[in-house]
Design a protein around this nucleic acid. Structure first.
Lengths: 223, 223, 223, 223
DNA sequence: AATGAATGAGCTTTCATTCAT
DNA sequence: TATGAATGAAAGCTCATTCAT
């Protein structure tokens, strides 16, 4: 469902005893998929184990509790795509306009297609039950994510590409729709009849960036 | 899985409907609050009853099961704010620009402040476990919501206020950040340390609408 | 097995809903019997419930955990027989010899026949797993129990009935065998073939007290 | 329940007995310590292995099950101190008084200090769960132990050292406090605050034997 | 109509035991 | 022989639901 190579490995050793190193991430992948699909509380520990191809008890060889598994899932998944795309933006030295039209849509489409997209739903759903997720998420995702976008916008303003806008608010204008599309993908979007409901998310992302870019650009008359 | 339009089915039997209308809306309010805060699965039926000030057994006098309570909560809450704001937009006959700068922000702030804002989180969180919510939500919220925004945008284009843009995509640009802010309010935003994380949502909404409006307006140069 | 009226009550209301007040002590009685027979760890919570005539879940209506049930059993059972017999000794004002030949054997036979006899085994068995039992037991049983016996012996010495002996040690000489007989009753003594192993405990108690009494008395030659 | 003399049955097949003798007595020592401390049921097989310095699987190379390990522990530990002390008493040919004042206290202090002292607790605790322990214990410990003490007392009576007392009961008077002190050592006595609770067990044993000896001796007036 | 004691299916977690290495 | 990853039966505990009052 959420992709990742949960099952694709090792059809040659069908029974007991596989590799201890691979187990944790197989379990994490299975857990991410199920926690995102059904919610943490509605997912049984045994389901996670089954989807990872192991028995119930094996799960507890690697994680002390279901809750610790959740925390590990979040920690594990956050590390990947977000920081990675951020890196690309930091290394970019072209015009801000160019970054908005080329870098951002590419990065966000990757996020949308990756398992990280599921994480947004997971965090939104579970923070209130596990408040220490909030701090971790804020520090690892929200702050650095917004910071890099705000820096980009500020650069555009400094270079004269953009009007002097409320940079903080504008960053939200850019980011929030993509997160919302990720959430949608893993909720209503995953239900049968809602397929035609939202048009191709790629089209929406690119269109959105164009629209905001135009709103930002300096050479239009002010409101 | 089971039925498809379970949520709507009861409006087909208006006989006992009266009794259901009379059902303590305290229970529905309590359920909305708790389901949103902790998730459906993690909320105990007794908690709902307690918060509503009645005993556990009383809940089952009005709802046959916890699941039926969830459906009732969604049905009950959707009826209010969404349809109401839609009405206001339909009755509006001024310029599209005016609608975007005055009507929309006002309505959305009302939604943001109302219990309806919680509903977005609830639906996002629970659709995959209760697929018939999807149909109901799509028909009652997504479709009419997008339709009215798209109509507004189309009107703006027809009147020459806006450039000819991808109306469907632009509607998402307008709507998604708003919904995302509602979700945020009930998840990360409700956690202690994340207060300063996101600036005042009202400022973000107004700023966002201004930005998109500029992007839509005809008198700027095309990309 | 260990007696007490666990089942003897209420054959008129065979199904649900009995008296809330009676439940806890029915459960405590059942728990004492089973914990003593099989040990705390080897006793399943459901067994306790079954023997008390209720369902598994009902147990948890009255005790938060199996461990808390254990503590409650100990607290509840200690209160009765020990303190009671102690009272009798304190109120006795005849000769120490008389107390040893009449009061003590009567009291100890009562303890031996009562459910309290089981408690010795339970405490011996479980203190090391639940160290706070130790403090409670020391303060409620060991200290007051030894104190009253030592006072009795001291009185005998002061009155010239007994030789001046090591009062503390002599108290142990008196008390330890009876406790040991209680332990035996609930361990080896409860097994089929061991019935003839230990002669009638009453005979042993009375004989033991006679023997020690003679050893204490002043008019024999010193060693 | 199942067999009756399971514990003894293996001494009937002396073929593989050699192998069992060779089994790491570290495992048996570790098991005795842990079973005594926490009880059989509350001790995990892996703990035993760990304390013996081997891996979990190794334990099962030597013992087919945790239960068989328990039986082996009891068999192994009984062989040593009890039979040994018995031997010394049988070989003693001085006066009964001398035996009581010199032989017995020495032997019992050895038992008290040896791992055998733990065995009393183990048997008391577990007989009811493993009834065939009872037969083994009765035949190997209780009967020979009481027999030798009773013979000693009878000898004392025959020689005119002791009054003609109830030999069976008097044997219990001598033995029970000693066993009780062993139990105490491994239960309440092992807990922090109970150290001062019971005075030095050596003093109690010696004092007890003196007291009983005086009660037995012929030259005091009858009751 | 309202209550809350009682129930038992169901879930999390543990641990004796196995077996591939 | 020794290991320890894997298993799954079994135990503790929860909670949706019922029903006598």
């Amino acid at each position: 469902m959420t992709g990742q190579s949960v099952i694709m490995s090792e059809s040659a050793t069908p029974h007991r005893q596989r590799r201890k190193e691979a187990r944790p991430s197989e379990l994490l992948d299975a857990a991410l998929a199920l926690f995102t699909e059904k919610g943490f509380s509605a997912t049984r520990a045994e389901e996670v184990a089954q989807r990872a191809g192991v028995a119930k008890g094996t799960l507890y060889l690697y994680f002390n509790s279901k809750e610790e598994l959740l925390k590990a899932v979040i920690r594990h998944t956050l590390s990947s795509a977000v920081a990675d795309g951020r890196q690309r933006l930091l290394e970019h030295h072209g015009s801000a306009t160019e970054a908005l039209t080329e870098l951002l849509p590419t990065w966000w489409e990757e996020v949308y297609d990756s398992p990280s997209s599921a994480l947004f739903k997971l965090v939104i759903t579970e923070v209130r039950n596990f408040p220490d997720i909030a701090e971790f998420y804020a520090q690892e995702v929200i702050q650095p994510g917004l910071a890099v976008i705000q820096a980009l916008l500020q650069r555009g303003i400094d270079r004269g590409e953009f009007r002097p806008v409320d940079v903080e608010a504008a960053a939200h204008s850019l980011v929030l729709p993509i997160i919302m599309l990720c959430l949608h993908k893993h909720s209503v979007g995953a239900c049968a009849l809602a397929e035609a409901m939202v048009a191709d998310p790629r089209r929406i992302i690119r269109s959105h960036l164009q629209l905001v870019l135009r709103g930002l650009q300096a050479h239009s008359s002010s409101s």
